[in-house]
Simulated scan of single mutants.
Amino acid sequence: MKRPLKTTMLFFTTLILIFAFNVSTSHANVQEDEYLLEQEKQEKIFQEIIESVPNGTYSGNDITTNALDPSSYNPQAGDILYTPSTQCNDDNRETCKGITGHVGIVNPSTGTVTHIQAPGYLPKSISLNSWFTKYPKTVVVRHKNSTKASNAAKWAYDYYIWGDGAEKTYKVTIDQDLTKTLSLNTTYCSLIVWQAYYYGAGQKLSLNIPVMPVLFVNYAPYHDMYVLMKIGY
C-alpha cells in the first residue's frame, strides 16, 4: 500500500509544480505586455514633446568653439543623452522587445559619455564624436542645477568606469526598490543614469520600473530638468 501512496503524492506534487510554473509564467507575460503598452504610450508622448524642442547641431570639432552658436551643442557634465537610434528603431514588436531607446550621461570632462550599450557589453566611456556617429538622433536633457548634474556625472564615471561597477554586465532587472540594484552584478543604460543622480546628486528620479530611457525626456520637468535640444532630427 505504501508504493501507490508515494506514487500518488509524487503525482500531485508534480501537478502543483506545473501549476505554479504556469502561474509564474502567465504573470511574467502579463507584466511584459503591460510594460510594452506603457512603452508605446510613453513613445507617443515623446513624439509630441520633441515637436516643440529646438533643433541643435553637433559639429564634432573642438567643443569649446561652439558656445557662441546657440544651435550648437555645448555639452555640460551631467547632461542626459537620449536616443531612439538603436536596434529597436524599426518598432517591430515581434523581434524587438524590452527596453527601447538608449541613454548615457556626459562625464565631468564634457568630452566623453558614460553608458552601457547592450547585452554582452560592459560600462564604457566613449567620446561625444563616437556617440553622435553611432546615435545620430539624440535629445539632450539638462538639469537646472549644474552642481547636482556635475556630481551625478562624477559618480557615474567614478563608479562605472573606474570603480566597482566597471565589470558589471548588461541585464535589465525589475525591482521596485532601485537602490537595491547597486548590489547586483548587472546594470543597464537607464539604470546607470538613475543611480548617478540618486547616489551622486542625492536626487531620486521618480520613474517606472524598470527605468525606460524615454522617461528622462518625458518626465524632465518633474525632476528640475529641461529638454535643451534635439540633434539629428
Results as ranks from 00 to 15, higher is better:
115 H>R: 08
67 A>N: 08
132 F>K: 02
56 G>S: 01
143 H>T: 02
102 H>S: 08
132 F>E: 01
71 S>M: 11
93 R>Q: 14
130 S>E: 15
41 K>W: 08
51 E>M: 09
119 P>R: 04
60 G>W: 00
100 T>H: 06
114 T>P: 02
53 V>I: 12
65 T>V: 13
84 P>T: 07
50 I>G: 01
91 D>N: 15
74 N>P: 03
141 V>W: 03
140 V>I: 15
129 N>K: 11
67 A>R: 14
117 Q>I: 15
78 G>Q: 00
51 E>P: 00
64 T>K: 14
59 S>C: 05
86 T>I: 07
143 H>K: 12
143 H>S: 14
88 C>A: 12
130 S>R: 10
99 I>M: 12
111 G>V: 05
66 N>V: 06
82 Y>Q: 04
147 T>V: 15
95 T>M: 08
135 Y>R: 10
123 P>F: 10
73 Y>H: 04
120 G>E: 07
112 T>C: 03
109 S>L: 10
129 N>G: 06
143 H>M: 11
46 F>Y: 15
62 D>C: 06
45 I>E: 07
65 T>W: 13
60 G>S: 06
88 C>M: 07
86 T>V: 03
133 T>Q: 13
45 I>F: 00
66 N>Q: 13
51 E>Q: 12
122 L>I: 14
105 I>V: 15
137 K>H: 07
133 T>I: 09
117 Q>P: 00
128 L>P: 08
130 S>W: 05
49 I>Y: 06
146 S>D: 13
43 E>R: 09
98 G>I: 11
82 Y>K: 04
50 I>S: 01
129 N>C: 05
81 L>P: 06
105 I>P: 03
116 I>D: 04
72 S>H: 13
135 Y>P: 00
51 E>V: 03
56 G>W: 00
92 N>W: 12
44 K>T: 11
133 T>E: 13
55 N>M: 05
118 A>S: 08
143 H>A: 13
60 G>I: 05
133 T>P: 00
144 K>G: 14
132 F>Q: 00
57 T>L: 10
39 Q>F: 02
77 A>R: 06
120 G>I: 08
103 V>R: 03
64 T>H: 12
128 L>F: 06
108 P>F: 04
127 S>V: 10
72 S>K: 10
111 G>C: 04
115 H>L: 13
41 K>L: 08
49 I>P: 11
58 Y>A: 05
146 S>T: 15
46 F>K: 01
85 S>H: 08
139 V>R: 01
74 N>G: 04
147 T>L: 10
45 I>P: 00
133 T>V: 09
78 G>Y: 00
146 S>M: 09
49 I>V: 15
91 D>F: 11
111 G>F: 02
41 K>A: 08
78 G>K: 01
120 G>P: 09
55 N>E: 13
147 T>D: 14
138 T>Y: 00
110 T>Q: 03
133 T>G: 07
105 I>N: 03
125 S>D: 15
